[in-house]
């Protein structure tokens, strides 16, 4: 038996994944950052994908869900084959607000899964679902993003609460939110530095967290804007470093 070939086969593996970002490498190559439900964040080289003659180029772009054959290397892995499963990128680039919301999702997903190996499979399902919803259209991209952010944080172990007081557990509705404590606070527990959003905003935040689209789609723009600010602040508080693409999200 050919030794070199058998070791090559042993080093290669197949996985599906969503392309999170790409970096240029050398003349015509790219480093592809792939989120795989089994292996987590995989960084692999795709050779020659920037040439116009490359067949892999269109497949290995951000937002795309692919089936990839990867060979493990000493430092970087190499993608040798890839097949498109869901071309979400095609739909997202045709809609600029959806594109910016999707970019913020990808950046957040990379942050949340890079550190924590246990929650990768649920994080993958969440991201996949959120991108599919964005690509299908029908909901305002900003609210799809906010719902994804809250649920992704909940999956990562930072679940906020907008119905119960986070300190004493009293059932709401409550009128104040404290970001460092993790959500709604009742009148008695309210520490200084808490914000007091409108009651509609509190209802919207709870709906965003559970994915209740009937309430979310009916929400007023003012409540959406307030909920977006609270969601963003909550995300930044837990991720510590700024998510760059959040600033560029276009909300309606």
């Amino acid at each position: 038996m050919d030794v070199s070939r058998s070791s090559f086969a042993a080093k290669s593996y197949r996985t599906r994944g969503i392309v999170l970002r790409t970096h240029k490498l050398g003349e015509a190559d790219r480093i592809i950052t792939l989120l795989s439900p089994e292996f987590g964040v995989v960084r692999a080289v795709a050779k020659g994908v920037r040439r116009t003659s490359s067949k892999l180029g269109a497949t290995l772009e951000p937002f795309m869900e692919v089936d990839a054959q990867i060979v493990a290397g000493r430092s970087l892995h190499t993608i040798i084959q890839a097949q498109l499963r869901h071309p979400y990128g095609q739909a997202l680039v045709a809609d600029y607000p959806a594109y910016t919301a999707g970019a913020a999702m990808l950046e957040t997903a990379e942050r949340l899964t890079d550190a924590d190996a246990d929650s990768i499979a649920p994080q993958y399902r969440l991201l996949h679902g959120a991108l599919a919803t964005l690509a299908r259209g029908g909901h305002e991209p900003g609210t799809v993003l906010d719902s994804y952010l809250l649920r992704a944080l909940a999956s990562a172990g930072w679940a906020p609460s907008f119905t119960h007081c986070v300190r004493c557990g009293e059932v709401g509705p409550h009128g104040a939110v404290n970001i460092p404590l993790g959500g709604a606070v009742c009148h008695d527990c309210r520490p200084s530095g808490s914000s007091s959003p409108a009651p509609e905003t509190m209802a919207l935040l709870a709906a965003l967290l559970t994915g209740d689209w009937a309430i979310i789609d009916a929400a007023e723009p003012a409540a959406r804007a307030q909920a977006a600010t609270i969601t963003t602040n909550y995300l930044q508080w837990h991720l510590e470093r700024a998510v760059k693409s959040l600033k560029l999200v276009e909300r309606q």
Binding site: R21, T100, A103, K244, L248
Partner: peptide, 9 residues
């Protein structure tokens, strides 16, 4: 080109 992940808007 616009690339939000790299902070280019």
């Amino acid at each position: 080109a616009i690339n939000p992940i790299n902070g280019i808007g």
